[in-house]
């Protein structure tokens, strides 16, 4: 099990957990913990099970086996859903939507009053869009909506921010702006952060810890331990290179995976920005890189649906667990 940030209290612990729906396992053998102060990115292709894990973290999905422990005395979630999951047709002002983050403190039968309104305005101020308070939520741009939803999470005075695909479908400027905001909230407000994304290159330079959720495999650890060419190559089953460009990490697959094959699905987690262009797609390149790589680290192998459920032991290295299910 990963030890997490030094000195942080354990907030959430998964112990040999199997997750799924209606008795059908999607992921199994999950053992890891999230500690106070962590900035964890959970990355994987669509359908790999990221949201399933996130639902279990939030308590919306009970494990089929194993145990998920949430230390309620230390953790209060601020959940930021995928903005596309909210219907833009609802005639709600941005302030109304942000205020919902405090509804559980208002009490049944009571209307949210001035304190909720003031808290919502402060949260909007905190994320830099106070002037949009009276705008219809549905009319906001993608980036503005995301900021509003982060503000809504902040209204509840959370200790842990949980973001589901916060930059999905955004352009470079908007997504960078949102990721900078999340980093600021982590650094300035000392919020523990769990961020789910399918773009490895996008979150790799922000998060301190990284969990890779692939079809049939799960790996978690400190970002610098996960993002090594050896580890990623072993995990994805194709040669992968991790470069530094102007101090920024870039993960580049160096072989075109077989269309529709396991590696092709897994590599989607790297994101389109990391794919090599047509000129670099040659067997010679891939073979040369393969030949230069060392053996994969122990406990890590190609993703396989048939692999037995297994969790890593404790220690400084990244933990690994394998799933047996198909997809969420």
């Amino acid at each position: 099990m990963r030890s997490g940030a030094e000195g942080g209290r354990p907030l959430i612990a998964f112990e040999d957990v199997t997750l799924g729906y209606y008795g059908v396992a999607v992921l199994s053998g999950l053992s890891f913990s999230i500690r106070e102060g962590d900035f964890l990115g959970m990355v994987g292709p669509n359908g790999a099970g990221k949201t399933t894990i996130l639902r279990a973290v939030l308590g919306a999905l009970r494990p089929l086996a194993g145990r998920v422990t949430v230390h309620d005395e230390w953790v209060r979630f601020g959940y930021v859903p995928q903005r596309q999951s909210l219907d833009a047709g609802w005639p709600l002002k941005t302030l109304d939507v942000v205020g919902m983050g405090a509804y559980d403190r208002v009490g049944v039968f009571r209307r949210p009053g001035a304190p909720v309104r003031e808290a919502a305005l402060q949260a909007l101020d905190h994320v830099g869009i106070r002037e949009l308070a009276d705008q219809p939520f549905g009319s906001l741009s993608g980036g503005q909506k995301q900021r509003a939803l982060i503000a809504r999470a902040l209204v509840g005075r959370p200790t842990m921010l949980v973001l589901d695909e916060p930059t999905d479908g955004m352009d470079l400027v908007s997504s960078t702006s949102i990721l900078e905001l999340v980093r600021e909230l982590h650094d300035r407000d000392r919020l523990t952060v769990l961020m789910v994304s399918h773009q490895l290159n996008e979150v790799a330079n922000y998060v301190r810890q990284l969990a890779l959720v692939l079809e049939g495999a799960f790996q978690i650890g400190e970002t610098e331990e996960i993002l090594t060419s050896e580890n990623l190559s072993a995990l994805y089953g194709i040669p992968v290179q991790v470069d530094q460009v102007n101090g920024q990490r870039m993960v580049l697959p160096r072989e075109v995976p077989e269309l529709g094959g396991p590696a092709d699905k897994a590599i989607a987690a790297v994101g389109s920005a990391g794919r090599p262009d047509a000129a670099t797609r040659s067997r010679g390149d891939a073979e040369a890189l393969s030949a230069g790589m060392g053996p994969p680290p122990p406990g890590v192998g190609p993703a396989s649906k048939d692999a037995p459920a297994r969790s890593s032991g404790t220690g400084p290295g990244p933990g690994t667990a394998r799933g047996e299910g198909d997809r969420a």
């Binding site: 939030l58 308590g59 919306a60 979630f77 959940y79 859903p81 999951s85 909210l86 219907d87 609802w90 709600l92 939507v97 919902m100 983050g101 509804y103 559980d104 208002v106 049944v108 039968f109 009571r110 209307r111 949210p112 809504r152 509840g156």
Partner: peptide, 22 residues
């Protein structure tokens, strides 16, 4: 009228409502 807040919340964003204990 009494439960407007609750009906609105679970209708607009059931996932968030669930997270807050609804």
């Amino acid at each position: 009228a009494l439960l407007y807040k609750e009906f609105l919340f679970v209708s607009f964003d059931p996932d968030m409502a669930r997270t807050l204990g609804y």
